[in-house]
């Protein structure tokens, strides 16, 4: 079994101040890194002889419109089947320069997850082989998951907000 402590120490030893904000919400080791380092960090823990945290469980984006300079965040969940150990890695990126390197070179599964994140938030994954919308229609001109856009279908007519309800 791996302990959070062990992995955190190893990562700190290797990357120093490039990995920060260590947390353990509900026992899941969470840390942040920068987009310059994200590829090397992921590669390091993937190829690590002992850790073998080699399964990309999930990749998604989050938007924090109020955090200036860190409006967007990409979250990676990784899993080591051998040690049954999960880790969460976050990378914050600013809206002005919404780029992050792709991890499709490490996992094939990242392909669609990155496309989905792009589709929802407009986060550009540099080096992605086929970065285009996946779920929404090609003609869509905004990124619907961003907080500033409404959820509702603007064309709906039978909804009367004046009445009781939401």
């Amino acid at each position: 079994m791996l302990s959070n402590q062990e992995v955190a120490e190893e990562l700190l030893g290797k990357f120093g101040s490039q990995v920060f904000d260590f947390e353990e919400p509900y026992g899941l080791l969470t840390l942040s890194t920068t987009r310059e380092e994200i590829l090397t960090v992921l590669e390091f823990i993937k190829e690590h002889n002992h850790f073998q945290i080699s399964f990309l469980t999930d990749l998604t984006g989050v938007q924090y419109p109020d955090k200036t300079g860190q409006e967007f965040m990409v979250v990676y969940h990784l899993h080591s089947f051998v040690h049954n150990f999960r880790i969460r890695i976050k990378v914050s990126i600013p809206e002005a320069d919404i780029h992050i390197p792709t991890v499709t070179g490490l996992w094939e599964s990242a392909n669609w997850m990155e496309r989905e994140t792009y589709d929802f938030y407009g986060i550009l994954f540099d080096g992605h082989p086929n970065l285009k919308r996946i779920l929404n229609i090609e003609e869509m001109d905004y990124f619907p998951m961003r907080k500033e856009y409404p959820l509702e279908d603007a064309t709906r007519e039978d909804k009367i907000d004046a009445l009781f309800g939401r």
Partner: peptide
């Protein structure tokens, strides 16, 4: 806070990542 929880769905690991 944030949480990731997974269950074994019909097709595999069904995860819920909530912030």
């Amino acid at each position: 806070g944030e949480i990731y929880h997974a269950v074994e769905g019909g097709n595999g690991e069904l995860g819920f990542y909530m912030i």
